[in-house]
Design a binder for these strands. Structure first.
Ligand code: SF4
Ligand code: SF4
Lengths: 134, 134
DNA sequence: CAATCAAGGACTTATTATATCTATAATATC
DNA sequence: GATATTATAGATATAATAAGTCCTTGATTG
């Protein structure tokens, strides 16, 4: 079990967008090039962020993507869940009674992780270091 | 990103072994049947637990698997790492300087989860409820 | 020795991740 | 209004990993 590369791309793109102008959109071409990934693929990933309401897209010439929310509202968890989904990391087909002690432990562990990802805002690290890719 | 089914099998098997006799081994046949998984596949999984030193195997007739450590030494994390490995959940090909703020956040989040899995012993829940499978 | 059991290698199948390609729709600029 | 630019979306392709099977070998019991 690993986080997907898509999550990695999403995080880096968001960092770039946070550092960029909140008005002038950045094209996927440019975003993709700096990460060494194909524009079409990155586009698919970013569309999920759009649907999650974190960024907005601008079609047409000079179009691209820009933030839709305030920087400070965006957490690591938001981005990760937009890409990876919100399903539990530990899935079990059966249901043994209302409560399962195994799942309880696993879920609680997961929540510890999510809690940290939720309280860490992307803007926190964006200002600390302007991450230069590649 | 999800935990694999192999981890699920490993956890359930360990719970069974903890509840079972520490001397008389339990055959993989029996362990597999109770979980609805093939014996050969489960065998592969259990071999990893053997190599991790948590259980020991007994070949030959009336053979099988039994605990090698004390119950109280075995944590969720032990089992999970024996199956899933210990690699970081968030991998990045590049190395941008000694420290990367993104990886710092992700690693710390991961450690929160691991910390909980490490402090929870399997024996804790084994005694609470004798999990009956299926 | 014969039956029983785990270990391990080679292989297959299923599922998911990681793309690519093409067509379509929206927008800006001229 | 025509053209270039750019995101969206569906279909498809490839790669990687998970999940499972099969068969052989070697250890142990009785
Ligand atoms: S005990 Fe819990 S984790 Fe195990 S099979 Fe039952 S519901 Fe699933
Ligand atoms: S900034 Fe960190 S996570 Fe991003 S590419 Fe560099 S090392 Fe990797």
């Amino acid at each position: 079990m690993r986080f997907t590369k898509a999550t990695n791309y999403a995080l880096h793109t968001m960092l770039t967008l946070i550092a960029a102008s909140p008005v002038t959109p950045v094209g996927v071409q440019q975003l993709a090039e700096s990460q060494g990934v194909s524009p079409t693929y990155l586009s698919k990933i970013l569309t999920r962020l759009v649907k999650a309401g974190m960024i907005e897209s601008v079609s047409g010439a000079n179009g691209g993507y820009r933030l839709s929310r305030k920087k400070d509202d965006i957490t690591f968890l938001d981005i990760i869940q937009a890409i990876e989904g919100t399903a539990s990391l530990f899935e079990c087909d059966f249901v043994h009674g209302d409560e399962c002690l195994i799942q309880d432990v696993m879920k609680e562990a997961e929540e510890k992780m999510e809690s940290h990802l939720k309280k860490t805002k992307l803007a926190d690290i964006a200002q600390k270091a302007n991450v230069s890719l590649r």
